[in-house]
Design a protein around this nucleic acid. Structure first.
Lengths: 225, 225
DNA sequence: CATATATGATAGTTTTACTATTATTTTTGT
DNA sequence: ACAAAAATAATAGTAAAACTATCATATATG
């Protein structure tokens, strides 16, 4: 899957930035550098000073793009939801069977990504690691309601809504489609984290992608009458 | 359910504290005060200086009990897992049917708690709100592996292990019991948070505890052959 | 009642998060 | 090609947070 998105870009809610990082080379270096650095040292240890040093710029310049490191992480997660939604549309296009569409959606939402380099300055694999380890910190704050009003979570809700719609195509009487979808998205992140760091909280089955298998079976059982 | 634990206390891994807060009145004020304050202002805005002020002590005194606010939050979550495990044992004691035990376990893990005051200095309802909004921040750090080695997550794993054992009693061939249990624990927290702040990510059904109903149905469907 | 221990009062250090100012470089319109 | 505008760099500074240290005082204990 190479460069198939060469002329499109993921729209990110401007609430998360002061100046669009897509609009300049420095902005792109900030994004690329922050993905590298957050993945490497973790969000708590990440500072704009360290970022400036790695991308050979200055703290003040970074602050012209992002008001805080929290907003930068927010930007990255919004971008990721947009990226997921794009792939979702791509992967379910022209498929008639809702069961097959749902299966593909679950794979997208639970499998580690291997594709790369659709966007020159974004390392999707590292970004996904950041999403797994850091993304709950974006919404688990006292500012979540304001941010929600500002539209920060629209992309996430759209994605959940799209997958929910497929579930309702399969079973129009199923009562909890959104719950099921957000459970598998957040759950898959947790399970990947547990597999790496707290294996006692998960089940690792050799020669099998247990996370995807587990959620696939779970979803199809849950929505059956 | 009143004071039925008058002579027992929840053991917390000493890795999380410098001096046992259960061992002194000041220690108990630190715990009580931090539960109030973290619930009110959120973990990011919480500082030892603010805590000291609310409990009428000093920053330096708080630091004699906890090395950092991260360790304090860790202490609270370890205590909560111990509390849950105790309740789990209590609620499943003398029940023969594994289905009934599992049902009770799911209720315990997914329902908001209403009982109170079993432990004088701990407000369990507020503590649960903290667990919902802040507990992933305990393990989602670069220090998780060291902490795990130090036994910080033993209580969580024990709890997950106990519920998994019931699942295996019902279906010895089920491959993912730990995954299923940790999915419902973390999932229920997320869904409660979403219901309050990001309702587009969940399904609120009036006159019904949708979270508990959803996970009960999900689990029993998942473990069926 | 002497001694040890816990807490309080106070002050200090380092780091982070962020703002302000001016100089220099790069971009853009004509 | 060049002047004006915009972006970035260089530098410095402030406020608060996250600790650490010291000494005085209170409380508990043997």
């Amino acid at each position: 899957m190479k460069k198939f998105l060469s002329n499109i870009s993921i729209q990110v809610n401007p609430h998360s930035y002061l100046k669009d990082p897509e609009s300049s080379p420095l902005g792109k270096r900030i994004i690329a550098g922050s993905i590298e650095l957050i993945e490497e040292i973790g969000f708590e240890n990440f500072t704009f000073q360290k970022l400036a040093k790695t991308i050979k710029s200055t703290e003040a310049s970074v602050y012209r793009y992002f008001e805080s490191k929290h907003k930068l992480l927010q930007y990255l997660t919004i971008w990721y939801w947009g990226w997921l939604e794009y792939h979702f549309i791509f992967k379910t296009a022209n498929i008639d069977s809702p069961e097959e569409k749902l299966k593909r959606a679950i794979i997208l939402l639970t499998k580690p990504i291997d594709e790369d380099h659709s966007f020159a300055h974004i390392n999707e694999v590292k970004l996904q690691n950041i999403i797994i380890s850091e993304s709950p910190k974006v919404f688990l704050t006292k500012e979540v309601d304001q941010e929600n009003k500002a539209g920060v979570y629209t992309g996430y809700k759209m994605l959940v809504g799209r997958v929910s719609d497929i579930i309702l195509e399969i079973n129009p009487n199923y009562k909890y489609p959104h719950m099921l979808v957000s459970t598998i998205i957040e759950g898959a992140h947790n399970q990947r984290f547990f597999a790496d760091h707290l294996p006692g909280l998960t089940d690792i089955v050799k020669g099998e992608d247990a996370v995807t298998e587990f959620y696939k079976a779970m979803v199809f059982h849950a929505i059956k009458d």
